[in-house]
């Protein structure tokens, strides 16, 4: 436990001093509020761009708050996940490659403390950023598009937060397994690209954790939670446990790969 405390403090200081605690929350807030604002002002924006023929009346379909939440989540699903893949795929791999990990590995290091300190600190940062960002989004959606169910809003936050946990856990596993470049590439595949094609190739299997994003959006758009959602959540939790456990075992195995 004391090793975990020491290593968590180190991760915390690192994320503060590398300004991750500044730029990631700001970007997540921007991602959340840009969607409702640009959608709301789209008619004015198009008009001021001057492409409209004289007298044409521009009619956009009326958007519901649920739909706007869906497209805000879409922002996190793309740019948010890209940020996770790029900024967190080096957590283990980079330390091993640049040699800073040697100093840890020659000590009686607890590998579970090592991995869990990185995992928990990164999640703290990402989940806090997401909750603040989506709340800012909710404020604008309420202001511009009207009322929405608070219960469903919290449900959406819960489901999408679980997806963030899954995404980070897979990224961490890639980082434990591979060198920095490969870890980044595979993370992008797993958490940015694969969710896009999951609906196509795993169409008839409704329980993949890659569908959590869709479930979160559907919940907000009005669907009641069903058994598929609960199964997906259970499998996602299992996947997280597997990823973290494997990361710990692999961190130990990869001692020989540590640059001296």
């Amino acid at each position: 436990m004391s090793q975990f405390t020491v290593l968590f403090q180190k991760e915390w200081k690192e994320s503060v001093r590398s300004l991750k605690w500044v730029w990631i929350p700001i970007v997540f807030i921007l991602l959340g509020i840009m969607e409702p604002i640009t959608t709301y002002f789209l008619p004015q924006i198009l008009e001021s761009a001057g492409n409209m023929p004289d007298g044409a009346v521009f009619q956009l379909p009326e958007m519901t708050p649920g739909q706007i939440f869906g497209s805000a989540l879409g922002q996190y699903q793309f740019i948010g996940m890209l940020i996770i893949a790029f900024a967190f795929s080096g957590l283990v791999a980079k330390e091993r490659k640049n040699g800073t990990a040697a100093f840890l590995y020659v000590r009686p290091l607890s590998y579970s403390s090592y991995i869990l300190s990185k995992w928990s600190n990164s999640l703290l940062l990402l989940l806090a950023s997401f909750v603040v960002g989506i709340s800012a989004s909710a404020y604008y959606i309420h202001l511009l598009f009207g009322e929405f169910s608070l219960a469903k809003f919290f449900g959406m936050i819960g489901i999408y937060s679980l997806w963030i946990v899954v995404a980070l856990s897979m990224t961490l596993l890639m980082s434990a397994l591979f060198s920095p470049g490969i870890a980044t590439a595979l993370s992008i595949f797993l958490i940015v690209f694969f969710p896009m094609i999951d609906g196509l190739i795993l169409r008839y299997w409704p329980w993949t954790p890659w569908k959590l994003y869709s479930y979160a959006a559907m919940l907000m758009a009005g669907d009641a939670p069903n058994a598929d959602l609960w199964w997906t959540i259970a499998i996602a939790v299992l996947l997280v446990i597997v990823c973290v456990t494997l990361s710990i075992l692999i961190a130990k195995k990869r001692a020989a790969k540590v640059t001296l």
Partner: peptide, 9 residues
């Protein structure tokens, strides 16, 4: 080691 690496921050 010959070239110990540190956390520069």
């Amino acid at each position: 080691s010959q070239y110990p690496k540190f956390y520069g921050w």
